[in-house]
């Protein structure tokens, strides 16, 4: 995967991507959006994949669920992976289902020894069945559990060490959770094993006010904020020229805006490493 920044691939931009061939390094597709047996979306993905490296980013595998690994979901992911041969496959350090019922949201885990053993075992099992390493992403959270005994950053690092997975470090998610729970973003970065971080995410968030207090919501509906760009510089300094993605899902702007955000990421990386990609 090139260090030149990529952008999230959204269906509204399919035709424009093929026509304009924007100068981005790669695309990241949400795996579940291409789980269909056939049809136009898959055809677009094939054609875009012919010209760009691709990452598959899942939101539905529910690796942190107490349920057993969802074999059917994994089978569909494996089928898509065989079809498009992605450079990276990633999922989230979260859960979204229990007892076979899904919230279809990235729900927070209690950071306990039990959860650590469970999610690490499921990630290892998924990697065995896929026949490859996957990356696991930290999520934004809006609550903490009283039973959590391990700081999130230590939990994520331990998951990577125990399961052998890589880390997709979402800097906006670190920032959102740090603001919501009052922890230090720099300490988070420093807790990550250097060699495990293989991808960075940048995105926007939305502040909401409740009872006179601010809470940040990870909406992926806005430009990357100044504080997250600063965090990006710190992450590049620590982890090197890691492939970086601009994520934008809601209130999707024109493709050119996403490309401009990717260009900004490239400028920061090039300034830091003093050479072009």
């Amino acid at each position: 995967m090139p260090a030149h920044a990529g952008i999230g691939l959204r269906a509204q931009h399919h035709a424009e991507v093929l026509n304009e061939r924007p100068a981005v390094g790669w695309f990241e597709a949400h795996s579940e959006n291409y789980f269909a047996d056939g049809g136009a979306h898959l055809d677009y993905l094939d054609r875009i994949r012919a010209d760009y490296p691709l990452s598959l980013h899942g939101v539905g595998l529910s690796l942190g669920s107490a349920d057993p690994l969802d074999r059917e979901h994994l089978r569909r992911l494996a089928r898509l992976s065989r079809r498009v041969e992605p450079a990276l496959i990633s999922e989230h350090l979260s859960w979204s289902s229990v007892g076979g019922t899904f919230a279809n949201d990235l729900l927070p885990l209690p950071y306990t020894e039990e959860a650590l053993r469970h999610v690490s075992a499921k990630i290892a099992q998924a990697q065995d069945l896929l026949g490859r390493r996957i990356l696991i992403e930290n999520v934004s959270s809006y609550l903490e559990f009283s039973c959590s005994r391990i700081p999130e950053w230590e939990f994520l690092a331990a998951v990577a060490t125990t399961s052998g997975c890589g880390i997709l470090l979402d800097l906006n998610n670190i920032y959102v959770s740090a603001c919501n729970h009052g922890f230090d973003t720099q300490a988070y970065l420093e807790a990550m094993p250097r060699n495990a971080v293989e991808e960075l995410h940048l995105a926007g968030h939305t502040p909401v006010i409740h009872d006179g207090r601010e809470l940040l919501i990870d909406t992926h509906s806005a430009p990357v904020c100044a504080d997250v760009w600063q965090l990006y510089q710190a992450a590049l300094a620590r982890f090197g020229e890691v492939p970086t993605l601009i994520e934008w899902d809601a209130d999707l702007p024109p493709l050119a805006i996403l490309v401009a955000e990717a260009d900004k990421a490239n400028s920061i990386r090039e300034a830091l490493y003093a050479h072009a990609a």
Binding site: E32, F35, A36, G58, V59, G60, L61, S62, D70, H73, R76, S96, S97, G100, T101, F102, A103, N104
Partner: peptide, 9 residues
């Protein structure tokens, strides 16, 4: 009829 899949479609 809650969602029974990680794929909302």
């Amino acid at each position: 009829h809650p969602s029974r899949s990680g794929d909302l479609q």
